[in-house]
Design a binder for these strands. Sequence first.
DNA 1: CCAAGGCAGTCTCTTTTCGAGACCGAAGCT
DNA 2: AGCTTCGGTCTCGAAAAGAGACTGCCTTGG
Lengths: 152, 152
Amino acid sequence: MRYEELADLPCSITRPLVVLGDRWTLLILKEAFAGVRRFNAFQANLGIPRSRLHDRLGRLVEHEILARRQADDAEHPEYRLTRKGHDLYPILMAIKDWGDAYMAPDGPPVHYRHRECTGEARVTLACDCCADVMTAHDVVPEAGPGLVAYQG
Amino acid sequence: MRYEELADLPCSITRPLVVLGDRWTLLILKEAFAGVRRFNAFQANLGIPRSRLHDRLGRLVEHEILARRQADDAEHPEYRLTRKGHDLYPILMAIKDWGDAYMAPDGPPVHYRHRECTGEARVTLACDCCADVMTAHDVVPEAGPGLVAYQG
DNA sequence: CCAAGGCAGTCTCTTTTCGAGACCGAAGCT
DNA sequence: AGCTTCGGTCTCGAAAAGAGACTGCCTTGG
């Protein structure tokens, strides 16, 4: 159980990764953002083993990233993004930007366009105070309240 | 070899995930961004099995995300981020933002501050044309050149 | 020169997870 | 009744992960 314990560390990168960091989870979420809601649709689009999919959907529901909805009890269940899940979108877009830059020799396979203009969605890292665009070099880590409160 | 074949699909989210999407890879990169360069340092900080670390570092070097440098041949090797690796930073910051929002009940464990002011680094999704901030709802996918060029 | 220790790997063995595909039960036609 | 669709379960062999000991090289100290 070594690996799961990483989720206890006071780090806002590590903790999400313990939930999201495996072969399939982010791919499932990618499908969810593309509008997929049904078990068989996830399965067919990704080619993921059914038992694996069952397990991953269960975890995502546990973490309230997806919600399992089954209207009339004899209706097919649907898996929909919650608010919390919806907020994962920038992660996928950041991956997309990098993929477009480094793994798309023929150009982007898909443009993610702004609905009301011709522009494209892009992720930027900026300072929330002066609004300057930042890179890793401009960042200095500093202890925050979550670290102070942490008793390891 | 089913899973690896996903890397052939024309999707700029799927392709990076085949490289980055496992238990350890993004955690290793997180350490790299924190300045870690040595084998034993990665190993000790993460508690990752040594053989696993060896394997992952090898992959990252293959993909030119890290570069293995060994000066005098009898010097300890260092693993440093390349430009390509450096550009992964927004992905980690997007994860960090979400982690701060949903998995940091006591507040952010670490502030990622702008070196030259008191602000913090935040990821935003915006239109590269009109600069509007966007969410998943504002995005419409559209075939791009990489999809046209694709012969599946 | 020898001993000790640090470092980057490597090897071995056990446990866990994955993958492929068959199978199941409950609707829902026809 | 018989066939299909759908979500979900089961089994079993294959792959990956984990732990921890072990190796070989170099440095440092005596």
